[in-house]
């Protein structure tokens, strides 16, 4: 692949933060730890990982907001600090994590401000229609719901007809309807030939929206591919979730027992719940039910589902994406 096909090229990216304040003083956190990444033009690329994995730092380095300690960053064929950052910024659209705007300004006034930064950008009404905020055009920032604020943030990012759009956790805290609306905006942008880099800790969002996903943990890429490829790498595309009475797992039935059943690839036990990743449900399920009945463990709940990126993450790290411990 030639450099011209790449929207972003990261090599050996490193960034450490030194804690601020009395107690954090001098404490060093490695946010990005030798990260390599290529984002192709025209794709929706997802950075998936738990909080604190280094997703936001990586994206902010790409946006030119944070200076890396080491490694190289090429964005749309250019490097930051090369003397013409402004020209590069003209080609980027940015939606930061929880970005705020002037509280007393209306939606239209906010967009007018951002429009002044992008000569030849989109018309304000066009952008309002893109994010379905026409009815809120004259409402002040303080009168908007979380979803509306987020759509306004995306609208400011779309004003300049960017080639590359950064969305940092665009749907965190939104209701399902607002999320779907934002997903439609992203899909529309990609249809028109734009490139999107988005970070999320929602696996369904990554699965639905992204052409390719990089799973990031502790500042490194630990898996990379299309969502389908990543799930297929589990060697099994289905999961069985079983709920039993507390204390039964590990005593009367162990994870090793479950893992030994026919068709089972992997088993994760968590208190009164076991999650089995299986290649074929029709072989694993009867065998499991037989085993539980033989050991006298009554079922409390049973569900089968397709494997997700979450299962990939659990397989790779032994933790869940939204584990508090991952923070």
């Amino acid at each position: 692949m030639t450099g011209g096909d790449l929207a972003i090229e990261l090599r050996g990216l490193r960034k450490t933060w030194r804690g601020a304040g009395w107690r954090g003083g001098g404490k060093v956190t490695v946010a990005v730890d030798g990260l390599d990444l290529d984002v192709r033009r025209g794709e929706v690329f997802g950075l998936l990982g738990p909080n604190g994995a280094g997703k936001t730092t990586t994206v902010e380095i790409c946006e030119g907001l944070t200076v890396p300690d080491g490694g190289s960053v090429t964005v749309l064929g250019r490097r930051w600090g090369g003397g013409d950052d402004q020209a590069l910024r003209q080609r980027l659209g940015v939606c930061l994590q929880e970005s705020k705007f002037h509280e007393k300004a209306t939606v239209r006034e906010t967009l007018r401000l951002f429009a002044s930064f992008y000569p030849g950008g989109r018309a304000i009404d066009e952008v309002l229609a893109l994010v379905s905020l026409q009815e809120k055009a004259d409402a002040r920032q303080s009168a908007l719901s979380g979803g509306q604020r987020q759509r306004l943030a995306v609208a400011t990012a779309l004003l300049g007809r960017p080639e590359l759009l950064f969305l940092d956790e665009p749907t965190t805290g939104l209701d399902p309807q607002s999320r779907r609306q934002l997903w439609d905006v992203v899909r529309g942008f990609r249809r028109d030939g734009g490139t999107v880099v988005l970070t999320t800790h929602y696996m369904d969002e990554a699965q639905q929206l992204c052409d390719r996903v990089a799973i990031v943990d502790h500042g490194k890429v630990i898996a990379l591919g299309t969502p389908v490829e990543l799930i297929r790498s589990l060697g099994a595309e289905h999961c069985i979730d079983v709920d039993v009475e507390p204390g039964a797992l590990g005593a009367r039935v162990t994870a090793a027992d479950l893992q030994a059943l026919p068709g089972v690839q992997q088993c994760e036990c968590d208190g009164a719940r076991a999650s089995l990743t299986v290649a074929s449900v029709h072989r694993a399920l009867p065998a499991m039910l037989e085993l539980l009945a033989a050991r006298g463990v009554p079922l409390r709940g049973l569900a089968t589902r397709h494997a997700t990126l979450e299962d990939v993450f659990v397989r790779l790290t032994g933790r869940h994406l939204r584990d508090e411990g991952a923070q």
Binding site: L96, E98, S99, F117
Partner: peptide
Amino acid sequence: TQRLLRRLIVTPMR
């Protein structure tokens, strides 16, 4: 502190 300046500086504004 409102993180508004961060948003503004990633635009072409000088």
